[in-house]
């Protein structure tokens, strides 16, 4: 495997209002690396959606962003309840978020579909009662 730069974050599951700090930090780090603004935008939005999902549904987790020469990999890993039906969860508008979450502007059922929209590849590995691992890739060109 080629050399890469890793950014690792523990996503706090307790503070929903300030969730998303890891994504904003990733954006700053990628900017400092001089990457293409559109690539940075796609990576940081996809990661933010995943980060918010981990806070809403899984009580937090860990996030890794690996920057390779040709692509950026985002890995989001949690030990939450898992996704019983991934196909259903992927549908725009499907949401199991609470009213509180919705009152903050989230829970529109667009998170996973936005993650797919902004990345070149997305794999969801989820087991009910064990957790969810999402691996996304954004190609550099």
């Amino acid at each position: 495997m080629s050399e890469f730069v890793n950014f690792h974050f523990d996503v706090d599951g307790d503070n929903f209002v300030s969730a998303g700090q890891a994504s904003v930090k990733v954006k700053k780090n990628l900017r400092e690396m001089g990457l293409d603004p559109d690539i940075i935008r796609r990576v940081s939005i996809a990661m933010y959606e995943g980060e918010i999902n981990m806070v809403i549904h899984a009580g937090g987790g860990v996030a890794d962003v690996n920057v390779y020469k040709d692509y950026i990999e985002i890995i989001l890993d949690d030990h939450g309840p898992g996704i019983p039906n991934v196909e259903l969860a992927m549908q725009e508008g499907y949401s199991t978020a609470s009213d509180h979450v919705r009152s903050l502007g989230f829970g529109a059922g667009m998170g996973l579909s936005n993650m797919k929209r902004y990345t070149d590849d997305m794999q969801i590995d989820s087991t009910v009662g064990v957790g969810t691992k999402i691996t996304m890739r954004v190609n550099m060109e």
């Binding site: 209002v17 300030s18 969730a19 998303g20 603004p37 559109d38 935008r41 939005i45 933010y48 959606e49 903050l104 502007g105 989230f106 529109a108 059922g109 667009m110 998170g111 579909s113 936005n114 929209r117």
Partner: peptide, 24 residues
């Protein structure tokens, strides 16, 4: 006002008009 819609649809450089007022 739905943040994921904004992230999915708004473009860089847009003016974003909203009534949401939280940190997100």
């Amino acid at each position: 006002d739905l943040l994921s819609w904004v992230m999915g649809r708004a473009k860089a450089g847009n003016v974003w008009v909203t009534i949401m007022s939280n940190l997100n």
